[in-house]
Design a protein around this nucleic acid. Structure first.
Lengths: 131, 131
DNA sequence: GCTATTGTTAACCATATGGCTAACAATGCA
DNA sequence: TGCATTGTTAGCCATATGGTTAACAATAGC
């Protein structure tokens, strides 16, 4: 990949971690507090190896931390990566809202201009042939 | 998958859409307003077919809408899927914070109890072996 | 010491990503 | 008409996901 400017593997993994229902379910449960793998992942209806892989994805994304405690592994949530993901979407939403404002301004300007010169610019509010 | 309760393919695709820097870059640009494929995807240093695939992922996630306008394709952002993703993380963050509150309450209770009985529970404020 | 419990790794398979080149489709334009 | 522009599809390849069964590792407990 030539464009090395916006590369952010952390964000990549954070979003990828959230892109599967089982992983989201695990994160939701861990929101209740530290618990064992069995407690955090029981009842999802998949095999233990499948669970192990999901945990690996979550761990490599930095969303969970594992503490091996004897025979069991205790899992704890790490909120930082999801905070980053949240912040990215939040930043975009700000931009959209600001843009929607200017669009409203634009439409108001169009309305005003039409009120003045009464031309045939029906193209102004045409939302383009909808697919 | 046995657990069919929490299945949310829309959320799956929304998060997956954000999990690649080029796709995030495209979404960022489209935040500026409707534009052509060339305008929205230029300069990422990958081939056109690669771009086409990213657009397909974004489109199937519902994050963009394509309007074929003669020779060019005009792209427009659709904010709903990202709003949903934002809301999911936001909900989790609320739970975490509420949990942190109760943890603080718990610690305060511990502190109070120690003040009363002066026992040797140094384990109360230990944040567990930091992996 | 033996056995049950907890969880992982190994090996395999199917599908999705993410990239490429080559070719095509549809316009716009001289 | 002919050519340049815009963008996709087809085919190929490598790697990551997401699942399985079988086997292993480590510990807890009888």
């Amino acid at each position: 990949m030539a464009n090395n400017a916006v590369l952010d593997p952390v964000l990549d993994r954070s979003f990828a971690a959230c892109s599967h229902p089982i992983r989201r379910g695990i994160l939701e449960r861990l929101g209740e507090g530290e618990m064992t793998v069995g407690e955090a992942t029981g009842g999802f209806g998949v095999s233990k190896p499948a669970i192990s892989k999901h945990l690996k994805v979550l761990e490599e994304a930095g969303t969970i931390v594992r503490v091996i405690d004897g025979r069991t592994h205790r899992l704890r949530l790490r909120t930082d990566p999801l905070d980053d993901a949240y912040a990215w979407i939040g930043k975009q939403r700000e931009l959209w809202e600001r843009k929607f404002d200017t669009v409203e301004e634009y439409l108001r300007e169009q309305r005003d201009r039409r009120g003045q010169q009464q031309k045939t610019d029906t193209t102004a509010d045409r939302p383009d042939k909808e697919a």
